[in-house]
């Protein structure tokens, strides 16, 4: 094939696309890939949720002997903190967008603190519970779901720590930052999952 008839066959549309092609560098792909990954990961939670619903609706003796139900008050406070942190992290991102690094760091750190508070609250709750993961289907699914989610919160906080550290490297966040965007996306994801979880486990008793 020769390049002679290039201009005649390549229309304007195509040329625009080609110019664009140069821009879509790794950065964009990474965000796209990360979203694909999150969608896929959500299916794990979905499977656990379905399992929980099936067990709960079919089980004959659902709660382990001697267990009345779950205390909702502290988990509810925990929930409020976690859900609000989604807004806080949003503000952090806005600050970064406006290139206000200290604003970013403050709010970003606040998010981490709220995430850690959630983890702490959950640890306290676990320690006070009268049943373990071997206590029937309820015990198993309860610890599986909250534990698996807790692992995600922990991952989120660690990722946020890394991003915070990186903000101190000079000029690191000059052109927007994939790491920050995806960490915050991950955080929202973890939040949404928790809301469903909270409804399934604590509200629907």
């Amino acid at each position: 094939m020769s390049t002679a008839n290039l201009d005649s066959t390549v229309d304007a549309d195509l040329q625009a696309q080609m110019a664009h092609g140069a821009e879509h560098e790794e950065e964009d792909h990474r965000l796209f890939g990360f979203i694909v990954f999150l969608l896929s990961e959500s299916v794990i939670f979905l499977s656990f949720f379905v399992g929980y619903i099936v067990y709960k609706t079919n089980a004959t003796d659902w709660l382990p002997a001697g267990v009345e139900g779950l205390e909702v008050r502290e988990p509810f406070i925990n929930t409020v903190v976690l859900v609000s942190s989604s807004f806080v992290i949003y503000f952090a991102e806005r600050f970064l967008h406006k290139e206000n690094l200290w604003g970013f760091r403050t709010f970003w750190f606040l998010t981490m603190a709220m995430g850690s508070f959630f983890l702490y609250g959950q640890a306290v709750e676990w320690l006070g519970l009268p049943f373990g993961f071997r206590d029937g289907l309820f015990g198993g699914t309860f610890y599986l779901l909250t534990g698996f989610h807790g692992l995600h919160v922990l991952t989120g906080v660690l990722l946020q720590g890394i991003m915070l550290g990186r903000s101190f490297l000079p000029n690191n966040y000059a052109g927007g930052e994939f790491g920050v965007v995806s960490t915050s996306l991950f955080w929202h994801f973890v939040d949404v999952i928790w809301i469903v979880l909270f409804i399934l486990i604590y509200v629907w008793q």
Partner: peptide, 25 residues
């Protein structure tokens, strides 16, 4: 793969828990 594998993973993890730590799924 993206939709299906997580379900298998969920099943495998729970089976592993049953096998190793004695949960009752």
């Amino acid at each position: 793969q993206l939709v299906g594998l997580p379900a298998l993973t969920a099943g495998a993890v729970t089976l592993l828990l049953d096998l190793t730590v004695g949960t009752s799924f």
